[in-house]
Simulated scan of single mutants.
Amino acid sequence: MMKTIKFNEPFLAGNELKYLKDVFRQDHFYGNGKYTRLCAEFIRKKLSVENVLITDSCTSALEIAALLMRETGQEQEIILPSYTFSSTASAFARAGFKLVFAEIDPKTMMMDVRDVREKFTQNTAAVVVVHYGGYCAEVNEFRALCDANEVYLVEDAAQAFNCFLNNKALGTIGDFGCFSFHETKNVHAGLSGALIIKDNSFVNRATYIWERGTNRQDVLKGLANKYSWVEIGGSFYPTELQTAFLYAQLEALERNIEERKVIYDEYKIGLAPLKLAGVVYYPEFHVDYKSNYHAFFVVFNSESKADQVREFLRARNVHAYIGYIPLHSSPVGLKMGYEINSLPITEKYSKRVLRLPLHNKLTLTQVAGIVDLIKGCI
């Protein structure tokens, strides 16, 4: 029987303990210190952006964006994919937005701009686009659509840190970009995230929200002499222990991607005959796109085939998983008035997705073995 192959194993860069020990020497643990600043500066330079807030999660980044866009007393809607993680929706639902779920394009498993266009109303405040698996949504088309309708564009780029389209970083094309540094992502802090803010006029408010709704940073800078509650905020930034760990990971970013690309390419070459035969499908990258190779997923030609292969792999100690259970047909989505057949394309294709193990500890021999198992099962 094959040795257990985990779906994910956390990446380690090498300097994590060194920087954690430095936090102890600094004697500053709670956050917003040396390593928080170093991480923010690294991301600013890497993504060529001006405004970065390091957060304790991508969920928190989304929640800050939602609070910034929320107009109290107004009926506001956001359009978002149902095929995404719950945080994408919860952040906006909690802030009081009505959620309008849109269909996916089965060729990408990401939101279909044509369906989004049909769902605009006078109450639409924002479109939330999700970049899935290291691939790029039709973000420029969404940007044009949002500009034409004078609404915000939010990029949930939880899986897309260090991805570039035409040399423009994903997460920087929208008005807000939200990243995840969760343990399951390419680089991580156990749990952390970041928020990119395009409009400078939002920065002060975003910082207040980030600082539990207070003007603490103004007081520290000498811009205010009283510490006060100025926004509805939260405890949204990580500890220095997390950002010290994250900084070590960020320094190894390019090595991380190079290693993952080799694994991704092995899957792509090995499964090409099944794609040619129409048994599975997986997207291709555009020539003007640089991926972070976060995931390798296949879409089978039937739900039963996807289940069969997943169970076959599991019986042989290979952990492969489905993508997302659509939010519109989840218990919360049904309470909101959606029905299972509200988004038939999403419902159909989400059941055919299988994400294969992809992490830096995976060997090419193991990848070849997984490919052989899939071929043998089919």
Rank of each mutant, 00 (worst) to 15 (best):
C136R: 12
A148R: 15
D105K: 13
V116P: 03
G96C: 11
E138K: 09
V130I: 09
A148F: 00
V100D: 01
T121H: 11
C136P: 07
E103A: 09
E141W: 03
Y135A: 12
C146R: 04
R143L: 02
F92L: 03
Q159W: 09
D147F: 04
F92D: 13
A158W: 02
A91C: 02
A89H: 13
A158N: 03
M109N: 14
K119T: 06
E103M: 13
L99F: 12
R117G: 11
M111W: 05
N149Q: 02
H131F: 08
E138C: 04
A93L: 15
F85Y: 12
A93Q: 14
V127T: 14
I104A: 02
A126C: 01
N140P: 04
D112F: 02
A126H: 12
P106C: 01
E118C: 08
T108C: 07
T121Q: 11
V127K: 08
Y132H: 12
V139M: 04
G134T: 05
V116T: 13
A126W: 07
T88V: 13
Y132K: 12
A144W: 00
V100I: 15
R94Y: 06
T124Q: 03
V127C: 12
D115L: 03
M111I: 12
M111S: 03
D105F: 02
N123F: 15
C146P: 02
K98I: 13
T108H: 06
A144Q: 05
T108A: 08
S86A: 14
A93N: 07
R117A: 15
A93H: 09
F142G: 03
K107E: 09
A137V: 09
A89S: 05
G96W: 00
D156L: 04
T88R: 10
E141P: 04
R143N: 03
N140S: 06
A95Y: 04
F85N: 12
C136M: 12
V128C: 14
S90L: 08
T108V: 06
F120V: 01
E138R: 13
Y152H: 06
A126S: 08
E138W: 04
V139S: 01
A160D: 13
V151F: 00
E141L: 04
S86F: 11
V113R: 14
A148S: 09
E138I: 06
T108N: 08
M110Y: 01
V129L: 09
A102K: 06
A148L: 03
K98G: 11
N123Q: 15
E103S: 08
G134P: 07
V129Y: 15
L145F: 00
